[in-house]
Every structure is written in C-alpha cells, then in structure tokens.
Nucleic acid binder design. Sequence first.
DNA 1: TAGATTGTTAATCGATTAACAATC
DNA 2: TAGATTGTTAATCGATTAACAATC
Lengths: 213, 213
Amino acid sequence: MPASAVPTPTLRRLPKYYHYLQRIHMEGQEIVSATQMAEDLGIHHTQVRKDLAATGSQGKPKVGHRVADLLASIETFLNWNTSSDACLVGAGNLGSALLGYSGFDRAGIRITAAFDAHPAKVGKKIHGVPVFPVEKLDEAIRRLHITIGILTIPADRAQHIAEVMVGAGIRAIWNFAPITLTLPEDIIVENVELYASLAIFSRKLSERAKQKA
Amino acid sequence: MPASAVPTPTLRRLPKYYHYLQRIHMEGQEIVSATQMAEDLGIHHTQVRKDLAATGSQGKPKVGHRVADLLASIETFLNWNTSSDACLVGAGNLGSALLGYSGFDRAGIRITAAFDAHPAKVGKKIHGVPVFPVEKLDEAIRRLHITIGILTIPADRAQHIAEVMVGAGIRAIWNFAPITLTLPEDIIVENVELYASLAIFSRKLSERAKQKA
DNA sequence: TAGATTGTTAATCGATTAACAATC
DNA sequence: TAGATTGTTAATCGATTAACAATC
C-alpha cells in the first residue's frame, strides 16, 4: 500500500497549525476545537479536520482536541522530534539568517557546519556555527557523514555546489537559490520559492492600482 | 467583467520562468519555445503555455517566443517595472537579509526605511538603508507616505506592529512572521510561509527514513 | 509543402467544501 | 437527553493534463 500520500497543501498548512497551537498552549489553553482553529486561522473547518486527521491525531466529540496532543502529532508526523545534521553553503545575508533561526533546530535540522567562498567569512562563527572554506565541502561532508544540505548561494553557482554535495554523500537538499537543480532521481530536493510569494504580493498591489485608476 | 482572475499557482510559477529567462537571455539566447522551457524547468508544456498566455505574451508558431518579450510581459504583468516605497520592521537576521536583496528592488519594491526595537541597531545603516527606532514608525510612514510594509519581527509582536502600520496609512503588508494577522478587509496581506517548505522537506526526509527501516 | 510550434477546448485529476452520521 | 463536536462520505470546484485545430 502506497500509504495514500498526504496532499502537499496539507503539509504546507501544518506549520501554521503548529505555530498557532504553540501560541495558545503558552497562553495556557489545553483544549481546542477544529472550529475555533478554523476561525482563528481563516481556514475552512472541514479542511482543518482533514489536515489534523492526516497527522494521526484524534479528538473527542463534544470536547475537541488536546492542544498538547496536536502539537505532538504534528511533530511526529513531520519528524520534527528527531534531529539530523545539516550543512549550509553560502553564509551571506540569507544564509546567516538561517543560521540564527532557532526554529529549524526545533524542526529537527541541526546545522553543524557552514561553508563560504569568501575568505573574509571563513574561520568565523556565525550564530555559533563555524564557517569553513567551500573547498573543504566535499571532505567535511564525508568526514562528518552529513546527509542534508542547505543551499543559500547565488543561482549561478547552485548547480555546481549541489553536484559536489551529492558526490560527497548528501541525500537531500533544501534549495533557496531560484534555479531548478538537475540531480539524480533519488536525491530529495525541496525548493524555497521566496519570489513566489513576492509575485502574489506584487500582483495584488498591481490589481489595486488598476482599480483606482 | 471580473477579469477572470489568474490562478495563484500560475503567479507562483512566474518568477521561476522569469529567473530562467534572465539566465538564458544573459547567455545570449533570443528565442525560446514553451517546450524547451517545460523540459528545463520540469513543468508540463501545456502549463507553461497557459502561464505565459496569462501574462499576455504571444509567440509565433514554428518559431517560439522572444526571450526579451517574455521577460517584459512578466515584468509588466507583475508590475515589476514600476517602483513603490516600502518600510521594513525588524532589522534582525531575516530583515537584514531582505535589506541586502537587490532582487526586490528589481521587483518594484524599494525599501527606504527600516525600524527596530533594539537601540543597538538604531542609527546604523544596513545595506544602505537607515534603521530608525520602532517608536518612530507611525510618524515616518505618515511623513514619507509609505503604503507598503514588510514585517520581519517575531510572531508575538507582529499583530501589534501591523496595526500601527495600518493606522499610519500602510495599505499592503508582506508578512514574514508565522502568524495570521487580523486586519481590515481592504488591507492587502501576503504571508511568506518559510515553514511550509520546511514541512514538505521534513516529510520527504521522514518518508525516506521509513522506507529504509 | 511538411512539420514544429502555438494556443484553445475538452477530459482528467485532485483539493476543497458540503452534507451527514457517529459520539460523548 | 440535547447539542456540540468529530470525522467520513459525497458534491463541487479549480487546476492540470490531454487532444487537437490553427499557423507560419
């Protein structure tokens, strides 16, 4: 059985639920209904129910869901409760920002080494993570048995570095460069499309400008 | 006529085409077929045709599309060829990264002022953009007639700052905080869901881990 | 012309929403 | 119990893919 794959839109919504639940959990709320979540998040309540069901969580009729249970279900479902080592290539603006994000650590991705092509960056620590010369990338991946790579370099170098990563043993790449990487089928690639959101934002702005005119 | 709205997935794909076209344009390619684009980007060719048609661009049968025309069409469609002033609140890791992005400037969003709550940041310039104390936010938005706000602050302060922005005249907010903002209907809000991509990445990792086990 | 490509119309697929039975 | 809530099955909606006519 192919486990009836969870829809991608559901996966994209899970962090939204997760952060919302963390917030109300901190505020002391122990029980929440799908109805309340739906209202607060602006999502249809049936949608919320299906999404939560996908994580394996169960609620009680008339009562609702235990907030702590939902948080645990999402964590388990996304494997955010186990940790893997990752390396990051490109300690520029965006890369440094990611190194400073505590959120990824909580999400099971521990960045243990960073690499950069600029000598000025090498040898320093950024948010506690040491920066090595990019020439050492291959060797370091092999020696530390890292299987996850994060790409925060300009598009024109991304394909090459991705190939070095894969050659050294990386099995999954979280790619922030705005380019489609061509890699062996068995390598997991997930692209972060920052500009996708910008396009939607720009279009909304443009539409309103037209309305006024 | 309600202009038969362009599908959101199409909008999300446009920057992908745009960056691809920029690349081949720089390499000197003047003509490209939807077929070639589809292959290189891993998207169905009919999809590419529909998306390009949505921008108003036209190709020539047997020939293809002029790369320069496509670039211009996408720019016009997304209003990336006209520029608007924006302010950014939260000059932390992510905020600083955005201030350093030249891409937004090209996409018609010119960040003219940044604000931060930490005195250590105030008075400095980050990538050429001056950082002011967040207390000055309301006054500055009014004085400079800024209508676009970018939120790169922690979730627990996002709703409050968003309200200050709206109160001062901001009409559109690009929100990087992982929280659902509650604002008047006529305010444009576009959320950047960094964690959505992470959830998909985590799930893929988790699925492969299960396969092996 | 023949054939590659465009661009549109129809069919399929998948996600969202609606309806409703089950439960405490 | 009555009613709120869960969770599932059916209907709708919208995006993707397939089929095909138009064009140079």
